[in-house]
């Protein structure tokens, strides 16, 4: 499951980070071209693709910093939704 999530996230990010081969733990903010439009599309992507809502409390830079971080957020949120 984790590998599938990362593949999906990587495919989404590849649209924005062209010509960059992103490592799972690479800091996408450090690459310098993350903006608010990207951030909003990222939020909509994880919500639609994985079926949960990004809440106020989830808005932490560390949740979106890398493929690993985003996958971690998705796993936590989907696990929480399933448990609920």
């Amino acid at each position: 499951m984790a590998a599938e999530i990362k593949t999906s996230v990587r495919a989404f990010l590849a649209r924005f980070f062209q010509n960059v081969d992103l490592a799972d733990d690479q800091d996408i903010f450090a690459l310098g071209f993350v903006n608010s439009l990207f951030a909003m599309q990222m939020v909509l992507f994880v919500e639609k693709e994985f079926g949960f809502t990004v809440e106020d409390d989830d808005l932490n830079m560390d949740n979106f910093r890398s493929i690993n971080a985003i996958a971690g957020l998705i796993e936590r949120k989907t696990t929480a939704e399933t448990a609920a």
Partner: peptide, 18 residues
């Protein structure tokens, strides 16, 4: 404060402006 500290543009402004 709404939308997470430091997320005023990335979350609140961008979604409202959309």
């Amino acid at each position: 404060l709404i939308g997470g500290k430091g997320f005023g543009l990335a979350s609140v402004a961008t979604s409202a402006l959309d």
